[in-house]
């Protein structure tokens, strides 16, 4: 059969090549983007460090240690103290809580978005959970379950789940019914419908929820550790506070923030590509 439209096709090969859609072109594009992303971050962080150093010289107070003093303190805690061990312990708690909260919150959010009766049943509980202060959840968790690891994780998870639920519920509500109708008419299997038609529509909501989730979770984890654990960054910060070691507190903060930035660059940036697939071509 003859080909139709061969002369009038709007999109050309050169456009494709320029925009880098070919599957083979993606890795190069990605590594270049990652490099420029890291360079930009380094420039901004260096500017911040210089400003900090300048301000510390001007103020000249022991309550406001210079950037170099903080780096010295970080060097000390890395070599002599337990900074690496504490950061790893906190990271483990944060990631474990993050995964549990994302899975449970995601599941409940999707169910609430799809089924009106689930939403009616759990909406009041969701509003209560959204408004209970994080500190109350942590204290009650320790009182009811004891000063154990599971109580610490549970407290963080309970704090995070409601925000995941809210985002994923909105995502599930916004799913295009017309595309689901295509899946039904062509009798796609339930797994194919879920993974190829339903879930891709939720990616922007999952990424937004994960991004806000990680930053919220590690902050809550520190409070949880401060109140009821004998290790981790939160515990270390509490100890440093008792000795009024401001440089040490800032050293721990910088170290942990740097790790979170690294996680962001390594894990979330590739997901951005996934979300943008077929929709954003810049």
């Amino acid at each position: 059969m003859k080909l139709f439209f061969s002369k009038n096709d709007v999109t050309t090969k050169s456009v494709i090549a320029k925009q880098g859609f070919r599957k083979g072109a993606l890795p190069m594009r990605f590594s270049k983007e990652l490099f420029s992303f890291i360079c930009l971050r380094l420039v901004i962080l260096s500017a911040l460090a210089l400003t900090w150093q300048g301000m510390a010289w001007l103020i000249a107070s022991p309550d406001f240690p210079s950037f170099l003093a903080v780096i010295k303190s970080m060097h000390y805690h890395l070599n002599e103290g337990e900074m690496v061990a504490n950061i790893l312990i906190t990271l483990r708690r944060a990631l474990l809580s993050f995964i549990i909260a994302m899975l449970l919150g995601g599941l409940l959010g999707i169910l609430m978005g799809i089924h009106a009766w689930v939403n009616k049943l759990t909406d009041s509980l969701l509003i209560i959970l959204l408004n209970i202060p994080a500190l109350v959840t942590i204290l009650l968790s320790y009182i009811w379950f004891g000063l154990v690891e599971a109580a610490a994780i549970a407290a963080v998870v309970i704090n995070k789940i409601p925000t995941v639920v809210v985002m994923l519920r909105e995502g599930a509500r916004a799913v295009d019914k017309d595309l689901l109708a295509v899946a039904k008419v062509y009798q796609l299997s339930p797994s194919k419908t879920f993974f190829s038609v339903f879930l891709p529509q939720l990616y922007p909501f999952i990424i937004a929820s994960a991004r806000s989730g990680l930053s919220l979770i590690w902050k809550i984890v520190l409070v949880v550790e401060l109140l009821g654990r004998s290790d981790g960054v939160g515990f270390a910060l509490n100890t440093l506070f008792q000795f009024f070691d401001i440089a040490g507190i800032l050293a721990y903060t910088i170290a942990f923030v740097m790790i979170i930035l690294l996680i962001e660059a390594l894990f979330f940036k590739p997901f951005d590509k996934l979300v943008a697939r077929g929709t954003r071509f810049d």
Binding site: D9, T11, I16, F21, R22, K23, G278, T279, F281
Partner: peptide, 8 residues
């Protein structure tokens, strides 16, 4: 290998 939004 094109995406739908790249097509007329």
């Amino acid at each position: 290998e094109y995406f739908p939004r790249q097509l007329s």
